[in-house]
Each structure stands twice: as structure tokens, then as C-alpha cells.
Simulated scan of single mutants.
Amino acid sequence: MKAIRAATYGVFYRLPVGMRRWIVRRAVPKYVVGAVCLVRDSDADGERLLLLRQPPGRGWSLPAGLLERREAPIVGAARELAEESGIRLRPEELRPAVPNAIVHARGWVDVVFEASVPASTTTLEVDGAEVYEAAWHRLDDLPKLTRATAKLLAYYGIGPLTDQPGPWAALKP
């Protein structure tokens, strides 16, 4: 089953972005809502962030995924965090990020939540199919990020795009 799942993800992530969006829109015809987790290392005073390397493996991203039908965003965020990193938190242990919802062009909405866990006592578990690797990274020394992750992190003043023009610039004091 794991091999089939890995092959399916491999094929899906090799498709052009437009085709992947088309497939997702057919499965979720009205709109696409994702749940995202910004997980900081409480041992490092929040100066480290949990990132994942997922297929096709060209950049690092945040734990995230699409909500299931009728699933509350906070429940979906906790579920995705557990599925992709092995970190099991109850929904009430997550807190809404500010801003909580990021609306992207083309009908995509990310609902973002934050959490802090001690990296020293937190075991990261990945399945090797949906996620290749999970690791903690210093905010001042982030690895190559996916473009979507870099854009999303900019809303929170994190990463390489924070000083560039974009919709996140309106949120700066």
C-alpha cells in the first residue's frame, strides 16, 4: 500500500501545476481550502521552524493539506500535522495565526495555525511517500523553500520574500 501511495504522489507531483490544480478543482469543485501549521521549536524560543521536504523535493514546505468535506480548519490542521510529521496535537493546542486566512489568487485559501513544541523531546515521523523528510530550521538560515511556502511565510515576516513587494507588505507596521 505504501508503494502505491508513493507512486501516486510521485506521478501527481510530476504533473504541471495547472494540471494538478485542475485535478484538485474536480475533486473540490467550489473552492479549495487548505490548513497550514507554523510549528516553532519552544526549546529555541521560537527561532526554529518545522519544515518538510515533500515530492518532488525541490524545496521545503510547511505541514499542510486540504480540508476534508465539512472538516473544521483547526481539526484539519491538527490532522495534517500528525499525518505529515508525526506531531500529534489536539486542535485546542493550536492557535490561529495572525492573519489566520490567506486568500491566494485562483480561489485558494490557506487557514494558518501556530503551535510551539520542544524539538528536543518531539519525535518526527514521516512516511517517505507524502513526506521525504521533516526537520527543524533556524529562521535566519532557512533552506530553499517552495515558492508557495516563501510567499506564505512572508505574511508572518519570515523568509526571503519579507522585504519584497507583495500583499504581505500591507500587513507590516
Rank of each mutant, 00 (worst) to 15 (best):
K2P: 12
A3G: 11
R5V: 13
R5A: 15
R5N: 13
A7K: 14
A7V: 06
Y9R: 06
G10A: 09
F12E: 04
F12I: 03
L15F: 02
L15N: 02
V17Q: 13
G18F: 01
G18R: 14
G18H: 10
G18V: 07
I23P: 03
I23T: 07
V24T: 12
R25D: 06
K30F: 09
Y31I: 10
V32L: 14
A35I: 08
L38N: 03
R40G: 09
D41M: 04
G46K: 04
R48D: 13
L49R: 13
L51H: 03
P55L: 03
P56E: 00
W60Q: 04
W60Y: 14
L62C: 00
A64Q: 10
L66T: 09
L67T: 10
L67W: 03
A82V: 09
A82I: 07
E83V: 14
I87A: 12
I87Q: 09
R88S: 11
L89F: 10
R90P: 05
P91F: 02
L94H: 08
R95N: 12
R95M: 13
P96W: 03
P99V: 12
G107P: 15
V112E: 08
E114K: 05
A115L: 06
V117T: 08
S120N: 12
S120G: 13
T123S: 07
G128E: 03
Y132H: 11
L139F: 02
D140I: 00
D140G: 08
L142P: 06
P143C: 00
P143W: 00
L145M: 02
L145S: 06
L145H: 03
T146N: 01
K151E: 12
Y155S: 02
Y155I: 03
D163R: 12
P165A: 05
G166W: 07
A169C: 04
A169W: 12
A170P: 10
L171T: 02
L171R: 09
L171I: 02
K172H: 11
